[in-house]
Structure formats: C-alpha cells, structure tokens
Amino acid sequence: MTSIEAANIPERQPTVIHPAWVRVTHWINAVAMLVMIGSGWEIYNASQLFGFTYSSSITLGGWLGGALQWHFAAMWVLAINGMVYVALGLITGRFRSKLLPIRPGEVAADVKAALTLKLAHDDLSKYNSVQRLLYAGIIVVGVTIVLTGLAIWKPVQLQWLTALFGGYDVARYVHFFCMAAIVGFLVVHVLLTLIVPKSLRAMMTGR
C-alpha cells in the first residue's frame, strides 16, 4: 500500500483548492467579523430592536462607547478586506467558476442528499449546489451589511443610500437581519468544518 501511494505521488497534480488570496482574506474576514458581531451586540443592547439583550459575557467593548470604538475600527478591516476579496473573486473568475450556476432543482436534490447523509464531498475543489447557494448568498449578505452599516452611520451625507434601504429606522433592522444571517451561516459553516476537518486544513494550507 505504501509503495502504491509513493508511486502515485509524482503523477498526481498538486491541486490548490484555495489560492493564497482566498485564505488570507478568509481569515482576516473571520477576525473582523467576530469583532464586528461582538461589538455590534453591545451597540444593539443600548437600544434594542427586539425584546432581548445580549449577555455582556459575549459582547465586546464593555459599554456603548467602547463597543462603538471597536465597531468603527474593525469596519475598515472588514470593508477593505471585503472589497479586495470581491474584486479578486470577480477578476480571477473564481466566483463564476466556483459559485455558478445555482439551479433550484440541483439545490433541492443536494439538500435531500445532505439530510440523508448521502452528499459526497470527496473533491473539496468542487462545491455542491447547496454550498454554491450559501457561499454566493453570504457574499450578497456581506455586501448588504456593509452598505446598511454605511446607511446608518451616515444618514445625512449618504442619505440616498439610507433611503434605498427604506430610511434610517428600517436600515437598522436590515443591518440586524444581515448579522443574524451571518451568525446563522457561521454556525452551519463551523459545524460542517468540524464534520469534514480536511476542509479546515484546505483553508489553512491551500490543499
């Protein structure tokens, strides 16, 4: 068995699943997102949209002023890193080749396969249609959370953007729901990584 493997190595093309720019932007985004979510929860607590608050044990900043400082510092990292990621995703054609097409029929079939634990993931370089939908969707959510953030940060200077999201108060809710979608994504994303640990290795080493 050892000899067969050894014999195979020279012939096998070393496939890079995630190029360096994907890995670097992924981990910068991961840290920036956690800071934005933790501080965002503390900001939310100052004036809640729903009948609950986040426990201060899971928020960042200690009080509103501290949380705002974290939020308005990490926003630069999140937004600049996000722009680099989206630009490279479009320029290199990675988004098109990896995330498209998304066909409802295939999504339904893959959801069914996943739920019956029959969904194959031998080849990490290829996304199934559920992955394509979720990864494409979370990019749209990421862009929306940055835009709604700008809309509620600058409702006078960028009032056209605020109006686009239905005004200041509505934009706050949209901003919140984007956060909820990202947290939901994060839970599934991390959970699936634990089930398929080689996907975590791929995001660290590239293969």
Binding site: G38, T59, L60, G66
Partner: peptide, 15 residues
C-alpha cells in the same frame, strides 16, 4: 477602567 476588561472581552476571549 472596565472599558475593555474582563467580561467586556467576551468575543475575543472566546476566539
């Protein structure tokens, strides 16, 4: 000076 201390670092401590 609880601005950034203890529980306030929840998310980063978790991380």
């Amino acid at each position: 000076r609880w601005f950034l201390r203890g529980a306030s670092l929840g998310a980063l401590t978790l991380l």
